[in-house]
């Protein structure tokens, strides 16, 4: 057993379970645990918690294209097909050089066209998968049993605009329903800010309202912590793409009741 006492080791168990001990400490602590059943029991409890932390993150869905990419990666080309290709290649070696050049150019052209089409289809598919996911989240939030809603009102910069932030009381994911928010010029974006009791502002989303949306939009929000932990929220007008902290005028403001 290492020279550390149980009291020393117990202090280090939480950090060990989180993988946060520095190398030199870790070796001493693990050597002690290997030989001490009491510390081992406590360590297992901390490990249970660390494993549980892996399950507590907000739920997201990968794009559908990812599964196809994985399945293609694990399914290598069949051997017999390779043999057939090799036989064809051997026969084709007798063709004149100009025929080879034309054939290669034609193949490159076809592959380029197919590649462009494939990328465009993948983009479309990813977009649809993301839309579907956001619709599922929206339905889940709107129909939840423990939902909370915060009303937001337009300032002088967005007169008549309203919004409602809705979320499940345990979740960091929510839905922002927007009405009559003016369309911004291309150089600007709206940015949602969530303010905690210490005044710290977390960015909740950066978005733009499309001209053909009739001023109505629904947005899924992914906050860094549970949405119930904030005390205020607001939407500001920022440079296109958003800012690390609010810099522009407020468009909507809301306070948790």
């Amino acid at each position: 057993m290492s020279k550390l006492t149980c009291a020393d080791v117990i202090e280090s168990l939480p950090a060990l379970a989180l993988g946060a001990l520095d190398d030199h400490e870790r070796l001493d602590v693990t050597a002690h645990i290997d030989a001490c059943s009491g510390c081992q029991t406590q360590y297992r409890q901390y490990v249970d918690i660390s494993r549980g932390l892996l399950e507590t993150v907000p739920q997201r869905f990968p794009p559908a294209a990812l599964k196809r990419s994985l399945m293609l990666a694990i399914d290598p080309p069949k051997k017999n097909r390779a043999t057939q290709v090799r036989a064809w290649f051997t026969g084709a070696q007798s063709l004149p050089r100009w025929a080879w050049g034309s054939a290669i150019l034609a193949v490159l052209l076809v592959f380029s066209l197919l590649g462009v089409r494939y990328v465009s289809m993948l983009d479309q598919q990813n977009g649809l998968a993301q839309q579907l996911h956001e619709q599922q989240v929206t339905i889940s939030v709107l129909t939840g049993n423990e939902k909370q809603s915060i009303a937001m009102l337009g300032t002088a910069n967005a007169k008549g605009a309203t919004a409602t932030l809705m979320f499940d009381s345990q979740s960091a994911t929510g839905v922002l329903l927007l009405h009559d928010l003016p369309v911004l010029p291309d150089t600007q974006s709206y940015q949602l800010w969530l303010v905690d009791s210490a005044g710290k502002r977390d960015s909740g989303a950066v978005f733009n309202v499309s001209p053909d949306s009739n001023g109505v939009a629904t947005l899924v929000i992914y906050a860094p912590q549970a949405l119930k932990n904030y005390v205020k929220c607001g939407v500001s007008i920022e440079p296109r793409g958003g800012s690390p902290k609010p810099t522009g005028p407020a468009a909507l403001t809301g306070t948790y009741s």
């Binding site: 993150v57 739920q59 997201r60 869905f61 990968p62 990812l66 599964k67 399914d75």
Partner: peptide, 22 residues
């Protein structure tokens, strides 16, 4: 069995991806 991986992916991909994004 590639079908097994496909089923496994359907069962767990959301949790794996959620953690990776987090």
């Amino acid at each position: 069995d590639t079908h097994a991986l496909s089923e496994l992916y359907d069962l767990f991909s959301s949790r794996v991806y959620s953690l990776a994004v987090a």
